[in-house]
């Protein structure tokens, strides 16, 4: 027990988790927004938009996240000298957020598209018949119903995103899994306890997301 207290005193465990939460928060907002846009483009009748979206989705979805994160740091910051913030750590944080957003946007887009497929064609026809254009119909009728039908896959993507924030360690962001590695390096005798601390920490963050997802998917289900 004392050993564990020692770990908490000696290492920034809470700060690490807090960084994961911040990464997850900002990345999920921007990835979701980008995902909605990609999904809209994907289903739009304009061929070029649909093609562009499909190309982005298929390209980015197939790049490993670690590669994206390292690329953001080494290529954007290292090679191209693009600095998003004068503060070193903030800069890395932003680069990691961008990589996480890019990586997860296609997953959100595909989740939303699966939701769009749950909306009967008649809904779109009725929307068009009262004089709504494509984007109004999408915004007012199709997407709201699609999101309700896609809460479970969206929740799954969100859970994956939260856990994937640990990959930011590859981009020199100090977060929980990085703290874990440092702790193990210097306290190999406490390895099991360290693993448990990190595992329980993530579970505490992720379990509520799963519960909320299930609750929302039941509460918001569209009755037909």
């Amino acid at each position: 027990m004392e050993d564990i207290l020692f770990l908490f005193e000696q290492y920034p465990i809470f700060e690490g988790f807090w960084t994961n939460i911040k990464l997850a928060f900002w990345s999920s907002i921007s990835a979701f927004t980008l995902g909605v846009i990609l999904a809209l483009f994907r289903i739009s009748p304009v061929r070029s938009l649909s093609w562009l979206s499909a190309a982005f989705i298929n390209l980015v979805r197939n790049i490993p996240l670690t590669v994206l994160v390292v690329m953001a740091v080494l290529v954007f910051w290292g090679q191209l000298q693009i600095s998003l913030h004068s503060d070193f750590n903030t800069n890395f944080f932003l680069l990691a957020t961008i990589a996480l957003s890019m990586y997860h946007a296609p997953f959100f887009a595909e989740a939303i598209r699966s939701g769009v497929n749950t909306v009967p064609l008649g809904q779109a026809e009725a929307a068009r018949a009262i004089g709504l254009g494509f984007f109004s119909a999408a915004r007012l009728i199709i997407i709201p119903q699609a999101l309700r039908g896609a809460i479970t896959p969206i929740g799954n993507t969100l859970i994956a995103l939260i856990k994937n924030t640990t990959v930011a360690a590859a981009g020199s962001v100090l977060e929980a899994s990085g703290v874990m590695r440092t702790m193990i390096e210097f306290n190999p005798n406490l390895m099991v306890a360290i693993f448990l601390i990190i595992a329980i920490g993530f579970s505490l963050i992720v379990i509520p997301v799963g519960l909320i997802t299930t609750w929302l998917s039941e509460k918001l289900a569209v009755t037909r």
Binding site: P120, G122, Q123, E125, A126, A127, R128, A129, I130, G131, L132, G133, I141, P144, Q145, R148, V222, T223, R224
Partner: peptide, 24 residues
Amino acid sequence: EGKALAALRADVGMVFQSFNLFAH
């Protein structure tokens, strides 16, 4: 296509076999 078509559709009401009320 486009806005002109939407405007014209607004003047033409349609009632479907399967109602198609906005479910949400």
